[in-house]
Design a binder for these strands. Sequence first.
DNA 1: TTGTAAGCGTTATCAT
DNA 2: ATGATAACGCTTACAA
Lengths: 346, 346
Amino acid sequence: MITIRELATASGFSPTTISLVLNSSPAGRHIPEKTKERIRELAHKLGYHPNQFARSLRSSRSHAVAVMVPDISDPYCAQILLGIDKSLYRSTYLPVLIDIQNSRARFRKHVATLLERRIEGVIAVANSLQLQTEMLDVFAKSRIPVIVIGRESNPEWISSVSVDNEMGARIAIEHLYEIGHRRIAFIRGPKRVVDSVRRWQGICDFANGVSLRLDSKLIVQLEAAASSSEAGFDAMNKLLRQEGRFTAVMAFDDMTAFGAIRALTQAGLKVPDQCSVVGFDDVAAAAYYNPPITTVSQSMEELGNLGVSSFLHATQAPLDNNGVGPQPVQHKVKPVLIIRGSTAAV
Amino acid sequence: MITIRELATASGFSPTTISLVLNSSPAGRHIPEKTKERIRELAHKLGYHPNQFARSLRSSRSHAVAVMVPDISDPYCAQILLGIDKSLYRSTYLPVLIDIQNSRARFRKHVATLLERRIEGVIAVANSLQLQTEMLDVFAKSRIPVIVIGRESNPEWISSVSVDNEMGARIAIEHLYEIGHRRIAFIRGPKRVVDSVRRWQGICDFANGVSLRLDSKLIVQLEAAASSSEAGFDAMNKLLRQEGRFTAVMAFDDMTAFGAIRALTQAGLKVPDQCSVVGFDDVAAAAYYNPPITTVSQSMEELGNLGVSSFLHATQAPLDNNGVGPQPVQHKVKPVLIIRGSTAAV
DNA sequence: TTGTAAGCGTTATCAT
DNA sequence: ATGATAACGCTTACAA
């Protein structure tokens, strides 16, 4: 691997000149174009690639951001990652993907790694509240900005990007209501997840507004911390076993909806003809499920984009701000209803 | 951020001693346990984290591997990533995730980044053949080992981990045959994809063996390079429009199968009662699709694991090998049939 | 217009 | 048993 000094000897110029040219430094503005040309050419020909370690060591800038996900195989994460990656690609930052695997031990081991690599920020996708707090402590101590993407929640003193869950739930139930559904069943998210609470709030608000009665028999509560299609399947079966009738189901999220639809189908009920189902998230599979499901889109790619902007903003800010650190920003994006084949008029 | 020198002054020892202790270097074996204890404690108390840049600069080892995926939001990648990540976690290597987004421009820009960061290897998931060749040139020049995971294909002079596609296709059709299907339709993968060819080979072999006739009317060919549920949907409709009857469909992969099932359902045909469908890959969604699909499992997590072992092997090898570089290894894993709800006896 | 030299934080080598 | 020193490759004052 060729170094700048070798390049210097090879070209007859000094390392300084090479450096100035290759970085287009303002200090090198008086170097004649011809020289620059020659140097660049030679660098290319010899396959010179500046050593980032040396560079980082000198400049104490790593140009790396940690991107933390609770579970990389979660389709919810995938879409957000896509957005993050696309945005980061235009910046000078390289993402260091960290999969926490919902394990505290892993989290802790990774923290050390990240600090050693001097990452300049953390973009965390939908971490559990507990991890967040811990994260804040440890990264704040090193003045590393943390941006949380995904779940609404956070203390005000941390930057976040999330969807307006309350509004999302409202537009979903509104849709069902408008196409004539009155007896609607609900699969509520786990109580400990903030999103569940917000979404339920949206539902209650709407129901109150139009004097729609929410029948407690038609409400099941998800228990496990993580949502899954299995949980949705079980919940739906519980709903089917009780006597109350319903024409539509609002699932906590898409995964839950998938399970619910399977249960419905297995019970011989056609979706959407005999029962409508709506999800939440607009996970990739929502579009190709059988049937494709009507859902509330979080536009997760955009969440990712916004997360990156927030990070970029945060790293710039210290310059403006006299040592206090940048003000955290709370982005909240508007959800959009995507109508597909899992809902129909009664 | 505290440095080793600050730690030295704070502790009263020299940087050398600190380094020896913190790295448990053999050279430090004569340092009394008490001293070591004290140093470690202080390091922890002051939150000392060795600067990896300095370390890498000194040792010219980055402890980083590039993990290249063609498209991060592809569920096929997700599972493999999971395996890679889990294996890498136990090693000293940090993955640098690179999403190529199927774009040559992105690929090229990233190559520079990777070389600058002195990554020690590349684990590439299912890249198109063209990119592979290019990759080999550029990385081979820098003696960086490349491992290709996923699609069977490669020249023998490159390490790879892939599933036995021929066998996979065979066990799939064998399953259909055993439960009584004789008129089987096929959605073949794109011609340019090596996997398609292999899988088709497996099918023909089996058909020959049992003298099963393959009706050309019942074969549709996917055109686009990438498989998608939409393509499967269209292909299935084409199949439905022609007059030949069939009781089962073998799809190129799971995504195709999803689309096919949707088309079948929309046409009023019940899966599996009126038509069985098998996929290939065992993507996560295969388990929670409606109905859950019978498919050939590539055990992608294991592919990921094997990819990492191959990489680890390759980086170790130069030591054994006198400068020639390690022998590439071709791993081929056995696929397994996962029987779920999309197939039934005739 | 170009070059010299110091220093970023670590660790390996050689002293003491 | 511990310490001084040089070197890894690069950037940037400062000199020329």
